[in-house]
Design a protein around this nucleic acid. Structure first.
Length: 559
RNA sequence: GUGCCUGUAGCUCAGUGGAUAGAGCGCUGGUCUCCGGAACCAGAGGUCGCGAGUUCGACUCUCGCCAGGCACGCCA
């Protein structure tokens, strides 16, 4: 399919040169030759709008010009016929030779089919989740985790060298508040609440009590008599380490691996923040004013300059973030992808500005994936979520209730920058309305036919038995052409960093298979037909399996 | 007030500047002597928020409105 596409493009290139040479015109811009895949069946396998592009410029009627073009295209066994249609489209109808080529390729490459060298082995870093270790991961983090993980898988399949990283925001004020919250609960459990009031903006979740209890179990009541400021670091580090451990566990159980956990604190300890500030100062991208150090963001399209070091000498979050991104590039990544909650979108211009100042291209070398909020529903009713009160449903709650497969599927089912309705009851349903099962069922069904064939003593046919001319029903044609677009959908998914494209594809593939299955029998048919359909089925199973594997959703053999 | 995102079927959402705008759910009606009915088929359902513009051609690009969301810190 790819080859014949290139061939046709080549023909059109020559046609284009010929047409313009005859007219002696070489003054205008040559339109790009695009071959697209028509949506409607009657419009062939490929279609080009070339005649329409040229018509206006040459002062000819599109359909007349189209005919002239068609006359210039040589005979080719892969092309069955060429038609002119509509306002001037040239439609190519392929002979079925390409189907055989595709099936061959799927068999040869197996579970690597569709992989490519698009990334050229370049190193890309995907930084995602990166939640403060101040509480359990919630549903929004889960969506970021699923999207980041899936994007990483896809990029890796497309020839990128992917580094998955979690940035631990373990420096700054939030850690203090966490420590104070735990400390206060400690005093409260000891019956001395009044001696250590709960911070106004403290973390109110029940898990803080658990942490405080654990401190009591470990260290007893010794902090009651200590100066509160000097015992604070104990609470702070105990709480954050404990929470980070549980975050790691959550992600592990959710099937999301990381190559590296990067501590914000380490940036300070290693002097990278200072180095970065000096670097910017030397380049005159940073300056002092009002006792603070500012980044000259306005020199790079941001609306205002940004503070790096406050006038009290404490660096801002932004400062460590700039140092962090500098460090990422210094580690050899040629491209950075940050996965953020959509509420951080206003932060993008200043980070892009920073990246420019560091000498990188903020459009090419850096990309932000914004993850919109998840609207959690139960039977259509919104599940109330309030972080402030500490009453919220955690990621773990969700995947333990509805299962990892369904949770992951739902999280990547929609464009990541649009709101997501996640109905817990729907995700649990083992029925037709649940898209996860729909896709998994297709896989189980394929396996079932193959094992049934085996138990009936059918020897799985050699690929040589494949007869593409026997696949003539609408259902079979549709299924075959769905297989044919796998590569381009995968490429699009990787280029747009959009897992939902792959999800839509796998859903369509499952649907086409179900239609085929219901319309045509496989086992018990005449030998040629049975063998051809078995080979087709196995090719479908391979592609479906690849999709599920990229989504890290189990491909059950029976369910 | 400024900036970003989103407005597509009753609901949730897809949609590469192309031809008659799609899917799932829901609704109505059908399909199992047969490889798994967690399936399939058919039908009804649309001023693609509104209005201009660019183009041979606009759901798609540009501008202006309208509506919703988010962000506008020496917070993270």
């Amino acid at each position: 399919m790819d080859q014949i596409k290139a061939t046709i493009t080549g023909y059109l290139q020559k046609v284009s040169e010929e047409i313009t040479r005859n007219l002696g015109s070489n003054e205008f811009d040559y339109p790009e030759i695009t071959l697209e895949r028509p949506k409607r069946e009657g419009h062939g396998d490929f279609s080009t709008n070339l005649a329409m592009q040229y018509a206006g410029k040459l002062g000819k009627k599109p359909r007349v010009l189209a005919q002239e073009m068609v006359d210039l295209i040589p005979e080719d066994p892969h092309i069955e016929k060429i038609e002119i249609a509509g306002p001037g489209f040239i439609n190519f109808f392929l002979s079925s030779l390409w189907i055989r080529d595709m099936i061959d390729e799927i068999y040869d490459q197996g579970n690597r089919y569709g992989s490519s060298d698009l990334g050229g082995g370049r190193a890309v870093q995907v930084e995602f989740v990166s939640a403060n270790p101040t509480g359990p991961l919630h549903v929004g983090h889960g969506r970021g985790a699923a999207v980041g993980d899936t994007v990483s898988n896809i990029l890796s399949y497309m020839g990128w060298k992917v580094g998955r990283e979690y940035y631990i925001n373990d420096a700054g004020l939030q850690m203090d508040i966490l420590g104070r919250s735990t400390q206060s609960r400690y005093f409260e459990l000891a019956g001395k609440a009044e001696e250590c009031p709960f911070p106004e903006d403290g973390y109110k979740g029940d898990y803080i009590y658990d942490l405080a209890r654990e401190v009591i179990d470990r260290d007893g009541m010794k902090y009651l008599d200590m100066d509160r400021e000097s015992s604070l670091p104990e609470f702070r580090s105990y709480a954050s380490e404990k929470i980070l451990t549980s975050i790691r566990k959550d992600l592990q159980d959710f099937g999301v691996p990381f190559d590296n956990w990067f501590s914000e604190k380490s940036l300070y300890e290693d002097g990278l923040v200072d180095q970065m500030v000096n670097f910017l100062k030397e380049k005159d991208f940073a300056y002092e004013q009002d006792g603070a150090v500012w980044f000259r963001a306005t020199a790079f399209d941001d609306e205002k300059d940004r503070v790096l070091i406050r006038n009290n000498g404490v660096p801002t979050y932004f400062a460590s973030d700039v140092a962090y991104h500098k460090n990422k590039f210094d580690r050899g990544f040629s491209k950075l992808i940050d996965v953020w909650g959509a509420d951080h979108h206003g932060y993008i211009p200043r980070v892009k500005a920073a990246i420019s100042s560091l000498g990188h291209d903020p459009e090419e070398d850096f990309q932000v994936l914004l993850i919109q909020f998840v609207n959690l529903l139960r039977e259509g009713d919104q599940v109330s979520m309030s972080t402030r009160s500490g009453q919220f449903i955690t990621l773990r709650d969700v995947f333990e209730e509805v299962g990892v497969d369904a949770t992951r599927y739902f999280f990547v089912m929609r464009r990541s920058d649009s709101h997501l309705d996640f109905d817990l009851e729907l995700a649990k349903k083992e029925s037709t309305d649940n898209p996860v099962y729909y896709v998994q069922y297709a896989h189980a069904r394929m396996c079932s036919v193959l094992s049934e064939a085996e138990s009936r003593g059918v020897v799985f046919p050699d690929i040589a038995s494949f007869r593409q001319d026997l696949l003539d029903s609408p259902e079979e044609k549709k299924l075959v052409s769905r297989l044919a677009v796998f590569r381009e959908e995968l490429e699009r998914s990787s280029q747009e960093l959009a897992p939902h494209i792959l999800v839509n594809y796998v859903h369509d593939l499952a649907g086409d298979f179900h239609s085929f299955y219901n319309a045509k029998r496989i086992l018990g048919e005449e030998k040629n037909i049975m063998e051809t359909r078995l080979i087709l089925l196995k090719a479908c199973k391979t592609v479906l399996g690849i999709c599920l594997d990229l989504l890290r959703i189990t491909a059950p053999e029976r369910m």
